[in-house]
Design a binder for these strands. Structure first.
Lengths: 233, 233
DNA sequence: CGAGGTGTTGAGGCCCATCAACCCGTGTGG
DNA sequence: CCACACGGGTTGATGGGCCTCAACACCTCG
């Protein structure tokens, strides 16, 4: 069951949770980690289920969604390589607060919750890194909250795209590309609107040449114009 | 300038950040802390300003609000006694992400950011407690996000009141009372709606006897009915 | 080739933000 | 002691943004 492939300590250096740690500690964390490939589409864990492992992504992408009792869902966050996910419940109530699905073929590291907790107890730097990571996400969530309460759908979608560029943007010939594969529904679920509204707005931007949409990827041709929409109107 | 009143280590035991710590560590934290009374209405810090201190509330209440460039604001959180605030920037970018105002006469403890950081480095338990606290808030923010994106204004206001009851509710003769003084605008800014809509909805509930509104305090006469509104409709 | 997931576009209507007017209690200063 | 300002609350009227419902086109994959 458990992959016995030894985990390379150098791989851990790319994970924000282990930033600024001496090699010995990386070795220690690597010794307790387990590697696993995540084929596209795999459901990694379900909302409400006991947190059996704490996760970090070495490559690929993972979609974190949260559904309410009525079935309506939002996209809480997209996880890229080097990011952790499903780690907070280790320290709180022990239940995953959301669903996690691989959106491209990916590779993860994971730890037994008790092991990660022990690691954090021994090395406060890891715990401090985790506060910084979770704190940053909290700040983003509050920003989204404010936008959702006060701004129009097109501004929110523009902000969504800019944030995604920030997280996973890369230069291409005709603009900046978002490295995650995104459905219209994903955009809508991040921006807090419906598939239909998102589709209309993106189609309009595409007509105006702000945006190029290729199979499941978005390229922002004019980040400046996008900025302008995100700000004024 | 600095209050030289020695801080009682026992007072620290009521602060969640210092839960489950040996007395010696409490003494250590107390020695670096500074006490300050916060008269009602005092602006404790401003959004965007460098985080000069990390704060914890011994008694009273503090309102944390965040304003966008256009002036629209939301109420990020109400801080009650035993809770920390303005502590995350110590570990991230060093800027307060929101405004903080005392809404009743209060007393705070505060630390120099470097001291708190050192304390967390020495005692990983403190850092771990902080992850738990920030993680819990992140979960709440994501829940609010989902509600705001998918639910009607009255459901959101009902959820808001229930959450506040959970945080600061106390039994009274005619129901459960929320211990913070709340303006209609505060409710609106938490639930993500306008003063007008909040006023209408609360007035309707008051007519139906679900709710009593006394000077600036709310008493929920029927938490069950409130639950029903928060769920189905 | 059919099935299912996805994207597009139109039509209609409703929730709620907005604008507006007015009331009330409190404090303040001439 | 009255006038006035000011923060806060209530309530009506109106309009528009966007959600909802619906129909159809496209693509991939078994």
């Amino acid at each position: 069951m458990t992959a016995l492939t030894p985990v390379d300590a150098k791989a851990l250096a790319d994970i924000a949770l282990f930033a600024a740690l001496p090699p010995a500690v990386l070795e220690e964390a690597a010794a307790m980690a387990r590697t696993r490939p995540l084929p596209r589409g795999l459901r990694i864990f379900d909302q409400g289920e006991p947190a059996g492992r704490a996760h970090a992504l070495l490559s690929g992408g993972v979609r974190i969604t949260q559904a309410g009792s009525d079935g309506e869902e939002i996209l809480v966050r997209l996880i890229g390589s080097g990011e952790i996910f499903g780690c907070v419940p280790v320290l709180t109530d022990g239940l995953y607060p959301a669903d996690a699905t691989a959106i491209v073929d990916a590779v993860e590291l994971s730890w037994d919750p008790a092991d990660l907790l022990a690691l954090m107890q021994r090395h406060s730097r890891i715990a401090i890194n985790m506060v910084a990571i979770v704190g940053k996400r909290l700040g983003e969530a509050q920003e989204r909250l404010r936008e959702l309460a006060t701004q129009s759908a097109d501004r929110r979608i523009a902000r969504t795209l800019l944030r995604l560029l920030d997280q996973a943007g890369c230069r291409t010939g005709d603009g900046l590309r978002i490295d995650f594969p995104l459905r219209r529904k994903d955009i809508a679920d991040i921006a807090g609107t419906t598939l239909h509204t998102a589709s209309r707005i993106l189609a309009a931007w595409q007509r105006d040449g702000l945006l190029i949409s290729r199979n499941r990827h978005l390229v922002i041709a004019s980040p400046e114009a996008m900025d302008r929409i995100a700000e004024g109107n």
